[in-house]
Amino acid sequence: MATVRLSFSPAPVHVRTARLVGVAVARRAGVAEELLDEVRLAIGEACTRAVALHRQYGLANLVQVEMSDGGNYVVRVIDRAPIEAGLGIAALPPEELAKESLTDEALTVGVGFALLAGLVEDLQVRPVDEGIGTEVRMVWPVAR
């Protein structure tokens, strides 16, 4: 099993770097070429969500991304925001999306979660084992 770890300051500019690394490791691990666009988008959404939470709570902690390929390609994106904030995300139904009352932030969060849930068949959002924070765990099959 190979593991690649990446930590970055919670700034939007670094999310692209995380996407690029995540896709490079996925390709190396043997994730099918046709899944790589989805891997790229899902890792981006998970990191965007973590950056947004850190900024919302004024946290300077690094966002952690861990990629490993033991049988499947597993990506874990870990934030350090209070758990109630991290777990309280839900997809929005279409009739809600264009409503005037919905703020741009709420819309982006809802759309981001819809993308994660729609793109990643094996997705878990759960509290981290130690300390404060949430882990978004995504798994993709590896063809060898």
Binding site: G44, T48, G112
Partner: peptide
């Protein structure tokens, strides 16, 4: 060649 939830949010806005 790449569009995420933030971009979609801007378009809806």
């Amino acid at each position: 060649d790449f569009l995420d939830s933030t971009g979609l949010g801007v378009l809806v806005g």
